[in-house]
Simulated scan of single mutants.
Amino acid sequence: MPNRGDRGGARTRARIAEVATGLFLERGFDEVTIAEVAAAAGVSKVTVFSHFERKEDLLLDRLPEAIELVRAAVRERTGGAVDALRQFALTLAEEPHVLSGLGGDVGPLMRTVAESPALIARLRAFGYEIEAELAAEFAADARFSGDAPLIAALVVAAYRTVAVETIQRRLAGEDLAELAESHRERLTRAFDAVERGVGG
């Protein structure tokens, strides 16, 4: 298995994801096989699966990055955990990062996701994965005591609600500058509500 940390492995992974995404957006996720992705990328099926555990991850290849970014935001905080995540979410919006729903051309991607039950299920599973990661991080903070799972669920729900609305409004054709401002305002309100409820 290639070392995912080396430059060659990273380039190969990025190339496979790029090729797969192009095929999925053109033909639909469920209509493209792993064998077709491998052939188009010039690699074997074994190589594809050495970089991606499941077919869905070929399109949703930024999900592992999201977990790492959230984990770092909590571990490297100087203040409250909820506030650190609020600042992290606002930073994603300012960049704008694709994970905020404001960066990149999300239209074709989200339409492809909406048409595939497998991709929708993967996104739902990811929600539970990132909740579990956050809960583990919060559990290490004595201030959160036994409430860590609840706080993690509230934070994830707050962010998901704002991001989903932003994506829906982008798909409806709203002005991006106005939408970005609204996105930041809604993030602030959402995290304020969570912070008030859990005391920081």
Rank of each mutant, 00 (worst) to 15 (best):
L102W: 15
S145E: 12
L92Q: 12
T12F: 01
G9Y: 02
T188E: 15
G8Q: 11
A93T: 07
V19A: 07
A135R: 06
E18H: 14
E53I: 05
S116L: 07
V48L: 07
L59D: 01
V74L: 09
F24W: 11
G101V: 15
N3W: 08
R4C: 04
L90Q: 02
A136H: 07
G107T: 14
A17F: 07
E137C: 08
E137L: 14
L23M: 09
L85T: 03
V19R: 05
A118H: 15
R86M: 04
L69E: 10
E94C: 07
E115W: 03
R189H: 15
A190M: 04
T166N: 12
E137H: 07
L58P: 01
L69C: 04
L99Q: 13
T112F: 00
V19G: 06
V113L: 02
A121G: 12
E178M: 11
R143Q: 09
T161L: 08
L90I: 03
T21K: 12
G127Q: 14
F49T: 10
A140T: 09
L63V: 00
R160V: 09
E131C: 10
D141M: 13
D6K: 07
E18T: 12
R184W: 12
S182P: 01
A142G: 10
I151Q: 05
R143G: 08
A93C: 15
Y128T: 15
P108W: 05
E195C: 05
R13V: 00
T161Q: 08
A40C: 01
V46L: 09
K45E: 06
F29Y: 15
T112N: 01
R184N: 06
A35N: 02
V194I: 07
A152M: 14
R15Y: 01
G79Q: 09
V106P: 09
Y128S: 15
V82K: 01
F191V: 06
A121K: 10
L176C: 08
D30T: 07
A66S: 02
R143V: 04
L90D: 02
R13Y: 03
E36G: 03
R122S: 13
T78G: 14
T112M: 00
E174Q: 12
D141Y: 10
A193N: 02
